[in-house]
Design a protein around this nucleic acid. Structure first.
Lengths: 204, 204
DNA sequence: TGTACATCAGTGAACGCGCGTTCACTGATGTAC
DNA sequence: TGTACATCAGTGAACGCGCGTTCACTGATGTAC
């Protein structure tokens, strides 16, 4: 993507991509506005034409991340049909796939320290993602007798927590080597959990 | 803890405590060696009498954290006896209690970006903590028929992942308000999971 | 099609700041005699 | 008990660095006539 003269053309998006790359390589701490500008082939001051500052850039990266994330999980859910169970499991796999394929986004969203309520746009994107998961959980939990059914928001919070935990503890290069492939770990974990809810037969 | 003259007396530990306090307040990014020194009432240069540098200080904080963590979980497991199930559940509660009561340590251990393999001492402490969890999982899983039993390390990885996920997503002030108290979320989550393993009766 | 001009994206120099780290030093402590 | 001296914990000044941000500017673009 060579620079074509004085005007960049699409600097805003180029800066976001530079930020994502740096965050991916060096963690949320390693990201600096100046280096992102340099990576995009531009003076640090140019950044201020497009963003209010450093945090604003990260927030926008996170927003785009939540958008993609929600789309991806929605798509996984839709194409995982017709069985609610199959759709739900596809959504779980999509979670991990997203974290793997878009680590920069994932880190911006969950590890950068920026609050999800920083801007209305960011909050909206995050809520949409959450809603997709809750809907998947809600539809699946209709197969449980009403009196034993946990609230869908609790159900989805459990799944989200386990997915996030697997990503953070076992799907990163740092530290503890995973005893099992993260994908397997998450799939078996969700499987056991769903069995506990009576959604999978005990001997399967 | 007023400074008593030229010599501090216990600067090494005072620096670690200052670091923990700063990490707790401002996150792993907010911690600086200079500010830790200032908090301990000492010149930045004095830090180098006790630590090789900034990272070394965090690593030592993490090491102490893993030590406390392992002790706490071991204690919870022991006093949670005689039933393996009760002991296991006590261990889960101890996990969350540790994260709540010692956020500086927890952050140093899991969010500071330092590798657990940075020093042999740190790795040893981390492994001890992991071993406690695995032992708890192992003993509990003996109640499962051998052919259906998942490996203890997988079992404990699931629990660890869910616990960590709950801490990160729902037990921090930042961002998403928890729909349920984290303690309840984790307890119900682990409960459903254990039911899935056949360790709790279905109608309980 | 050609010219004048408004718009605005990016420049480059400068700023003040706090960082981690080094160094020769100095003051307190504790031990040998 | 008293003195000399080795040890070493902490000082304070200095360093080079890269950061985020500001500012007056300049060069490219696109639109009106």
């Amino acid at each position: 993507m060579p620079k074509r003269g004085y005007h960049h053309g699409n600097l805003r998006q180029a800066l976001i991509e530079a930020a994502l790359k740096l965050i991916e390589e060096k963690g949320p701490t390693g990201f600096t506005l100046s280096e992102a500008a340099k990576t995009a082939g531009v003076t640090p001051a140019a950044v201020y034409r497009h963003f209010a500052g450093r945090e604003d850039l990260i927030a926008e990266a996170a927003r785009q991340g939540f958008d993609m994330f929600a789309d991806l999980m929605q798509y996984a859910y839709d194409t995982g049909q017709p069985s609610a169970l199959a759709a739900f499991e596809a959504t779980g796999r999509a979670y991990l796939a997203f974290a793997r394929r878009h680590p920069g986004h994932y880190i911006s969203m969950f590890e950068s320290g920026i609050s999800v309520n920083r801007t209305p746009e960011l909050a909206a994107a995050a809520n949409r993602a959450k809603a997709v998961l809750e809907r998947a959980a809600g539809e699946l939990s209709e197969h449980i007798p009403a009196e034993k059914r946990p609230p869908a928001s609790m159900f989805s919070a459990h799944i989200w927590a386990m997915s996030h935990g697997v990503v953070e503890l076992y799907a990163r290069n740092t530290g503890t080597a995973s005893p099992f492939p993260p994908e397997d770990l998450l799939e078996t974990g969700i499987g056991i959990y769903l069995r506990g809810l009576g959604l999978i037969e005990a001997d399967k």
